[in-house]
């Protein structure tokens, strides 16, 4: 269970304190429930994930983690360039207290990442795809109760993507996830509940579909129409001459999988 109580967060900028990103967020994630975070860019999704992951701390309020929570996966950090993939993996094993069964876990990481000989080369020689494969493999090597993920499924080449998606599905079976994604399909596939972040507040929905709907309804009408124009104008079907006001909502939504991205 994860408890988030009255969490406020703002960052310090070069010009003093920034605006509040989170203005009193409250929710409780029950055990075994996977949650999708939705909200526009800059709504504080990544901030909230970092706070839940314990990488960052709230200015006010508290977060309680009553389970093993992963580090935020897919944030690009956590690897030291001058060390090899194996050495980085060993480090992560050690800080998680897996000194005893490290050999096993290293094998799992090496098998999953499929880096071959590159596993023993410095990470700075890796391509970005290889990097993210290693990061993903690292996160899978530990049995967390809750995984925090930031679009991890969308890394690597086609083959790895498929493998990662399968591994992710397996993962979703035994652990729960807190993820943010601009892909509706991904969210629907993995999450049952949803949190919509808007204007510094969080709204909890027991069903991810409701969260997505609330999020979509928050997008102003004029914006919906203008992006419709762009999308439909470039579609092979040509300009159908529909106006949003009488266009079926279902349809408008399908045009707008990620309106601001």
């Amino acid at each position: 269970m994860i408890l988030v109580e009255d969490v406020h967060k703002r960052y310090r900028t070069d010009h003093g304190l920034g605006p509040w990103v989170l203005k009193g967020v409250n929710f409780r994630i029950p055990p075994g429930v996977s949650v999708g975070l939705v909200g526009k860019n800059g709504a504080g999704k990544s901030t909230l994930l970092r706070l839940i992951g314990g990488v960052d701390h709230p200015n006010r309020g508290r977060i309680e983690r009553h389970c093993r929570v992963s580090w935020p996966i897919g944030f690009g950090g956590g690897l030291q360039g001058s060390l090899s993939g194996r050495q980085n993996a060993k480090f992560v094993c050690r800080i998680h207290g897996h000194e005893d069964d490290m050999v096993d876990r290293l094998q799992r990481i090496a098998d999953f990442a499929e880096l071959g000989n590159y596993f023993d080369e410095p990470v700075k020689t890796y391509s970005s795809g290889m990097r993210s494969r290693l990061q993903f493999a690292l996160s899978l090597a530990f049995d967390f109760d809750v995984y925090i993920s930031d679009e991890v499924t969308a890394t690597g080449d086609a083959a790895f993507k498929k493998k990662a998606a399968e591994a992710f599905k397996q993962l979703a079976g035994r652990s729960s996830l807190i993820m943010m994604s601009h892909g509706e399909g991904t969210l629907r596939e993995f999450c049952t509940a949803g949190i919509w972040l808007n204007d510094g507040y969080a709204y909890w929905f027991d069903a991810i579909d409701d969260a997505l709907r609330a999020y979509k309804e928050s997008i102003p009408k004029w914006f919906k129409r203008s992006s419709n124009l762009r999308l439909r104008g470039s579609a092979p079907g040509g300009w159908p001459g529909c106006r949003t006001s009488w266009c079926p909502r279902r349809f408008a939504a399908a045009c707008l999988p990620s309106p601001l991205s």
Partner: peptide, 17 residues
């Protein structure tokens, strides 16, 4: 300003971490 971990028996003592 608080964040706590408590994972019961599975959790490690902060000093061990």
């Amino acid at each position: 300003m608080d964040a706590t971990d408590s994972v019961g028996a599975a959790g490690r003592h902060p000093l061990r971490v």
